[in-house]
Simulated assay, not measured.
Amino acid sequence: MAETQQNGIHIRPFRSEDRQAWEPLWQGYLTFYKTSLTPEVTETTWQRLLDQAEPMHGLAAVLDGSVVGIVHYLYHRSTWTVGNYCYLQDLFTSEEARGRGVGRALIEAVYEKAQADGASRVYWLTHETNTSAQALYEKVAARSGFIQYRKVF
C-alpha cells in the first residue's frame, strides 16, 4: 500500500520496528473490550501482520512522529461475490489522538486498499455500548442491520 497523509496524519503499513508502539495500542484495544490474550496469540498476531503471505494486514497512523492508531483487516471469500470481502477487525487510537481524525483516516485507508485489491465491501463490528465509535461509523458507512451470533470453543 502506498503511504497516505491526511490532515497531518500519516497512514502506512506496519514495519517490524513498530512492535513497541503497536503493542500498547493493541493491549489498550483488548482492555477496552475487557479481554486479554496470551503472549503467544499476541506474538502470532504481530507476525501475521508482517507476513506478506498472510491475508491479515495492519496499518499504523503516525501523528507528530508517533504511532497513535492501529487498524487490522483481513480478506476472505464470500458465497455472494467473486471477489473477496474485507473485514476490518480491530481499530484503536490512543487517548490523546481521539477527536483528531485518526480513526477516520485509518478506515479510509482500509477502504482505499480494499478497493485497490478488488474487494467488494469493507465491513466491521462494534459493541452496542461503543457509542463514541458509532458516532464516527455512522458518518463513514451504513449500518447493515445484521445481528451477530457466536459460539466460542
Rank of each mutant, 00 (worst) to 15 (best):
A2N: 08
E3C: 05
T4R: 07
Q5P: 00
N7E: 05
G8N: 11
G8R: 11
H10E: 03
P13E: 00
F14E: 02
R15S: 06
S16I: 02
E17K: 09
E23T: 10
E23M: 13
P24G: 07
P24V: 14
P24N: 04
L25R: 14
L25N: 07
Y29G: 04
L30P: 02
F32I: 12
Y33C: 05
T35W: 15
L37M: 08
T38E: 12
E40T: 05
E40L: 14
E40H: 15
E43V: 07
E43W: 02
T45P: 00
W46I: 04
R48K: 15
R48V: 01
Q52I: 03
P55F: 09
G58R: 06
L59H: 12
A60D: 15
A60G: 05
V62M: 09
L63C: 13
L63P: 02
D64M: 10
D64E: 12
G65H: 10
G65I: 06
V67N: 06
G69L: 12
I70E: 08
V71A: 04
H76T: 11
R77L: 09
S78Y: 09
Y85I: 14
C86V: 00
D90C: 04
L91W: 12
L91E: 06
S94G: 11
E96R: 14
R100C: 04
G101W: 08
A105R: 14
I107N: 14
I107P: 09
A109R: 03
A109I: 12
Y111H: 10
Y111Q: 08
Y111D: 10
E112A: 08
A114R: 01
Q115W: 08
Q115M: 15
G118Q: 04
A119P: 06
Y123M: 02
Y123A: 11
W124K: 01
W124P: 00
W124F: 02
L125A: 01
L125F: 00
E128M: 13
S132Q: 06
A133P: 02
A135L: 14
A135M: 10
A135H: 07
L136R: 01
A142H: 09
A142T: 07
S144D: 06
G145Y: 02
G145E: 02
F146G: 00
Q148L: 06
Q148W: 08
Y149D: 15
R150S: 03
V152R: 13
F153L: 12
